[in-house]
């Protein structure tokens, strides 16, 4: 089963970390990503640019309105996403507990695990409706 992991980070605090600290985290994280790939647990993932580079789209007055910044102004922003293949939630928790970002970020971030929704049945029904 797929688990989407949303990595939250306090951008301000992270930017104030020393270069050495940042590099140490990168090195450890990239090495662990390699391990996840080798073991077939890494389905995909990306690190994100800072939230100030985000654009938010909404439906307003009958058309799409684009605004600057992330959807929610909170202390912690999504800094990266990762899709894991795991047998169950406990397995996904174990894989992520060992992620080096956990100990590097300490209180400056957290991971949220969201199980992927299985839409197979809905897709089949929809195809039937659309005459597929």
């Amino acid at each position: 089963m797929k688990y989407i992991c949303l990595g939250y980070i306090n951008e301000k605090e992270w930017e104030s970390a020393s270069e050495k600290e940042q590099q140490a985290m990168m090195d450890d994280c990239f090495a662990y990503d390699q391990e996840l790939i080798r073991n077939g647990h890494f389905v995909g993932g990306e690190a994100l640019q800072p939230s100030r580079n985000a654009a938010t789209l909404r439906w307003r007055n009958g058309k799409v309105a684009v605004t600057d910044g992330p959807f929610a102004e909170t202390k912690e922003q999504i800094g990266g996403i990762m899709i894991l293949e795991a047998t169950d939630l406990n397995h996904a928790i174990r894989l992520l507990s060992n992620h080096p970002s956990m100990r590097h970020l300490r209180e400056r971030g957290c991971w949220e695990i969201r199980p992927a929704a299985d839409l197979e049945g809905l897709v089949a029904e929809s195809e039937q409706r659309r005459g597929g």
Binding site: D88, L89, N90, H91, P115
Partner: peptide
Amino acid sequence: REAKIPFEVPQQHE
């Protein structure tokens, strides 16, 4: 059921 929380006793270290 949906998040697939397994029916198991945690491993020793957990």
